[in-house]
Amino acid sequence: MPRGQPDALLNFPQPQPVQPLSSFPWVPSPGQADHNGEVMSGDLPADLRSFVSEHIHSIAQLELLLLLAGEPAKTVSAEDAARVFYLPPDAARGFFESMRATGLLSLEPDGGYRFAPRHAEWVPLVNSLAGFYRERRLSITHLIYSGPTDKVQSFADAFRLKKDK
C-alpha cells in the first residue's frame, strides 16, 4: 500500500483493508487437505478462470492491470507504475510488455501504456475480475498461482487423467 501522497496523475484507488481471516467464510478448516482447490476457486466462472490462467501470472501483474483498467482513458508509464507499487522499473516494464503481448494493453506514442483489450468481451471480464479481487482476494490469488505456470508443467499435467482446471 503506497504511503504518502500518491502521484496525482495516477489517482490510485486504495484497496480495501484486509479483514481478519476468521471473518472469511470460505477459509477451509485444517484437515481439509486437497479440497482447497475446489473450495477456493472452483466456483469462479469458467471464462474468468481461463482468462486468468492465460493472461495473469502474478498478483503484481494483476494489480497493474486493474490499475490501468480502472482508468481506461489514462496512459501510465512503467516508471510511474513502478514508483507507486514500489517495484523495480524493469519489473513493471516487464509486466506491461507481457500484457501488451497478450493483447490487454497498448503502447502509446508517449511511452505509456493504456488499457486497450484486443477483444471487447474482455472488458466485462476484467471488471468482474476487479470485483472478485476486491471481495475474494484469496480465491483470486489461489487461481493465479494454481494454474499451469508454464508449458513445461502443463506437459507433466497432461498425464493426469482427472484434470482440475
Binding site: 498461482y145 508443467q153 507433466a156 493426469r160
Partner: peptide
C-alpha cells in the same frame, strides 16, 4: 502422476 495426492506445482 494419477495417484491421489497433493500435487506440487512450482510457484513463480
Amino acid at each position: 502422476k494419477n495417484r491421489p495426492q497433493s500435487t506440487v506445482h512450482a510457484v513463480e
